[in-house]
Simulated assay, not measured.
Amino acid sequence: NRPKRRGPNNKFDNLPESSDPAEIRKQVEFYFSDQNIAMDEHIFYGIDGSKNRPMSLKHIASFNRMRRFQPYSAVVAALRDSEFLEVVEDGEYRGNGNEGIKRKVPITIPKLDGDKEEKELSLIDEFNRVRFNASKNSLTSSIIAKGFGTEEEAPQVELEEFFRPYGAIAVRMRREKDDGRAFKGSVFVEFENDEAQKQFLALDPKPKWKDNELFFMGKKEYNEMKCAEKGIEPGTTGELSHWKYRGPHQPRRGGDRTRRDGGRSRRDDYRRRRSDSHSRSRSPYRHRRRRDSRSRSSDSDDWKDRRDKFQKSRDYRGHRDEEEKPKQLVDERGVPVVHDTRPDRNPNGTLKEAADKGAADASKKRGRVDDDAGKDDGSKKTKLEVTAD
């Protein structure tokens, strides 16, 4: 299961309907951009990382930001002219309404010292590297801006329109970590490069949000300031081994895998403590549960005995089947006798018509023989009589 997208779902409901191909391309190309894929695990897992598999365009069109683009055919037509994305219309994406979308050039996975050419990274390892690399690179090309008020006063779309003329490529609203995910009134803004970020911070006078003064600071400087306040070292400037994103569905299991024993000693300690606590327990419920388990065991044994006795009795269906089954006939040598059960055959396999015809012919032949025998006897008797006279 891939991770669900978090945050309010109604902030884009009031956007006007549009079929502008330029707006459609800009929005979908942002979804598949290096900057967004590095932070959006839903898209990263959807394209299968460096394998660059297509995603369903219908699925992309169902995103909150995309629902205002109507009709769906306008989305497909606009993306066919994209220089960054490719519309896939073969295989499982064949047919109108089944189109897929993917990058023309797969995302690049950063290499580390010691990587082997034949080593294939897992999807979570690829995301670790891409996200860490993007976080490190965007540190010097991003700023933090504060003073926007509530989300109703500063919708996402208006914030993007506010920073776009200055070369911003991404605006990320900062939210509280509780379940409400309330907007903090501040955003991280990423620019095209370090130079664009420096030019924005050097603006004089500074841009205002609806006549309200705003606070601006480079993201790297802001990060160092907050770490100094908390007495910790900045972590995003270290090595990848010190920065691990476990992914949206990677639970920790098997103990501490950085230990030589794979975490077995901690598991063994836990099992030993659990066993000791059970042996010391004086809870009457535990003893009652043990007695119940023993009684269930005896009942199980009794049931097995009753089952065996029943199967050995004459009431068991197996015995009745054996009795009802006809016995096999055998000849004097013990060879099974096989009878032909076909309606047009005799038990010995001969045709009934042929057998009947043969019997009739034999009967006629016997009749002729008898007649001939009778004639012979008469002539002899007459001859004897003549001789006697």
Rank of each mutant, 00 (worst) to 15 (best):
V87H: 05
N98L: 05
G378K: 13
H319Y: 13
F12L: 08
R174H: 07
D302S: 08
A355F: 01
P21N: 12
R294N: 09
D308W: 05
R246T: 05
R174E: 12
K352P: 03
Q328C: 09
S50Q: 10
E195S: 13
G231A: 11
Q70K: 02
D48P: 00
R67A: 03
K365M: 11
S281Y: 02
D261T: 07
T382F: 09
P3F: 07
W303L: 13
S283K: 02
L214E: 02
K111W: 05
R296L: 10
L79Q: 01
K111P: 07
R65I: 04
S379L: 13
E161H: 11
N9C: 01
P155V: 10
N52I: 12
F191A: 08
K325Y: 11
S293M: 12
F127Q: 07
E17S: 10
S33W: 06
V28D: 02
V369N: 14
E89V: 04
E23G: 00
R257F: 08
R94Y: 09
A202D: 08
A134Y: 12
P207W: 01
E92W: 01
D299G: 06
F12H: 06
D321T: 13
N212D: 09
A228H: 13
G218E: 01
D301K: 14
G167H: 04
M173G: 01
R289V: 05
V337K: 13
H249I: 09
K26M: 01
D301Y: 07
R267K: 11
N348H: 11
R131K: 14
G167A: 07
S283M: 03
K146P: 00
F132C: 06
E152A: 14
E353Q: 05
E17W: 01
A202Q: 11
D299N: 06
E176Y: 08
S82M: 09
L15R: 00
G349Y: 10
E118Q: 13
M39P: 00
R164N: 12
N212P: 00
D13Y: 01
G318C: 06
D356K: 03
S279A: 14
M217Q: 15
H249W: 08
V157S: 03
E153Y: 03
A359E: 04
R271M: 13
L139H: 08
P205H: 10
D34P: 09
E224I: 12
F63Q: 06
A354L: 09
W243H: 08
G147S: 05
A78T: 00
R25D: 00
E83G: 13
